[in-house]
Lab assay of single mutants.
Amino acid sequence: MPSETPQAEVGPTGCPHRSGPHSAKGSLEKGSPEDKEAKEPLWIRPDAPSRCTWQLGRPASESPHHHTAPAKSPKILPDILKKIGDTPMVRINKIGKKFGLKCELLAKCEFFNAGGSVKDRISLRMIEDAERDGTLKPGDTIIEPTSGNTGIGLALAAAVRGYRCIIVMPEKMSSEKVDVLRALGAEIVRTPTNARFDSPESHVGVAWRLKNEIPNSHILDQYRNASNPLAHYDTTADEILQQCDGKLDMLVASVGTGGTITGIARKLKEKCPGCRIIGVDPEGSILAEPEELNQTEQTTYEVEGIGYDFIPTVLDRTVVDKWFKSNDEEAFTFARMLIAQEGLLCGGSAGSTVAVAVKAAQELQEGQRCVVILPDSVRNYMTKFLSDRWMLQKGFLKEEDLTEKKPWWWHLRVQELGLSAPLTVLPTITCGHTIEILREKGFDQAPVVDEAGVILGMVTLGNMLSSLLAGKVQPSDQVGKVIYKQFKQIRLTDTLGRLSHILEMDHFALVV
């Protein structure tokens, strides 16, 4: 994948999101292997301009796509893939009243899908469409860049269908997702969380590099694949309309690839034109409109599966009536509230959605109805927002919020430890010299600072030695090549209790 991002070429006709291997024109390309080798690009942008032909009021008969309808489940399912879809609609009884809503608040519980998330729908649909058009064949390999849930859905379907599955996901995604993927037989590649989507090191860039190296491999490409919004247009939206008897006044959905909100909203605009569509985008993402909503100094966020630093091709923002931004604290607070007060075992993005819903639905009156999409299960986040310690460490809970008995030293300040200034190293000294210094002084790690004293990161003896043994660096290389740029900081005025929580999850903390 090139470091400079080429513009994806656009073909003359058809839909841009065809499933299957992508040609340089962004659509299915038939021909000899030699032709494909000559024409197939190194990668295709996940934010390529959409060429979708959908228009409100256009006859369904003019759609270029294969459409399906929700099917009634048999008493005995032939395999677990038949437990994807037909998820329950559940009334939220307490939270709406707590925040003064007059309307009825309903939750579409997508964590009841077989793999635990709304992404099971698009995973199965992308595979079925690729099999139907002859792209996927027995023994082929599926590769997908994902925040985890699409990966789980694909790995689940691949396990049943017999495909090899490789999932490329950023490091910030939970260990629970990784464990589930491994249990399903998927191979996992992790990428830096802070890598831009168009960087060769991003999950998108690495996935395309693997595709170019592995024979008979395919990126189904949830960011561009029409099967993504079509899955929701054909099934999720129809289920909502049936469950609500066609009567709903507002739908609120958090947005990642945009397939969920695009597919549902398009069908609702056709069948229930008075329904307002509300999009939820986390602070630090750029999906919301108008652009002024996205202006923030924050560039990272903890909530998973929603928000991006690019506009995915499948996201149709014209069908969203209003956007709201959400933050991590309210997302996790509301997710825990949904679990504790409503018994809905949902993930953090569901918290984002409901946090926005109780604001947006203030305009609705008694007798009206708001539906929220709860995308995934708490299963993926047992060591994250479900953990009091994690919430404390991230600053989303305060010590006084917890009532468990603490040891005698818990409320003492870090400054009472009488710490001395640490050994520091410059980023320009060599790895070999740094190892000598650390061994001589008896230290395992040291902060790396520039000549102005600005902290650049941390270097550890173990990481340097393993990097040297693996051949990633040489003793003569500058130590700046092996620094940890993500590390926890703590102030002298913070409590030892807070430091204790940090050290339970990290090997060190830097006192500043």
Score class of each variant (00 low, 15 high):
3 S>L: 13
5 T>I: 15
7 Q>A: 10
9 E>Y: 02
12 P>F: 02
13 T>N: 10
16 P>G: 09
17 H>C: 02
20 G>I: 10
21 P>C: 15
22 H>L: 09
24 A>V: 13
25 K>T: 08
28 L>H: 13
34 E>S: 05
36 K>W: 04
51 R>S: 12
52 C>V: 04
58 R>P: 09
61 S>D: 04
61 S>Y: 11
61 S>G: 02
64 P>M: 08
65 H>C: 02
66 H>R: 09
78 P>T: 12
85 G>F: 02
87 T>C: 02
90 V>L: 06
92 I>A: 02
93 N>T: 15
95 I>A: 05
95 I>G: 02
96 G>L: 02
99 F>E: 11
105 L>G: 05
110 E>H: 04
135 T>M: 10
136 L>K: 04
137 K>N: 15
139 G>R: 11
140 D>I: 05
140 D>P: 02
142 I>R: 02
143 I>K: 02
143 I>F: 06
144 E>P: 06
144 E>H: 02
148 G>V: 07
149 N>C: 02
151 G>S: 07
158 A>M: 02
159 A>E: 09
169 M>G: 02
170 P>C: 05
171 E>G: 05
173 M>F: 02
174 S>V: 04
175 S>T: 15
176 E>S: 08
179 D>S: 09
183 A>R: 02
184 L>I: 10
186 A>E: 02
188 I>N: 08
188 I>K: 02
191 T>L: 04
191 T>I: 02
192 P>C: 09
200 P>M: 11
206 V>L: 10
209 R>P: 02
209 R>L: 08
210 L>C: 09
211 K>W: 06
212 N>V: 09
212 N>D: 10
217 S>H: 02
221 D>S: 02
222 Q>A: 06
222 Q>G: 04
223 Y>S: 04
224 R>V: 02
231 A>F: 02
232 H>W: 02
232 H>L: 02
234 D>N: 10
236 T>W: 02
237 A>Y: 04
246 G>N: 07
247 K>S: 04
249 D>L: 05
250 M>D: 10
255 V>T: 08
258 G>L: 02
258 G>M: 07
260 T>G: 07
263 G>M: 04
267 K>P: 04
267 K>M: 12
269 K>G: 08
270 E>Y: 07
270 E>V: 11
271 K>W: 08
271 K>I: 10
274 G>W: 11
274 G>L: 08
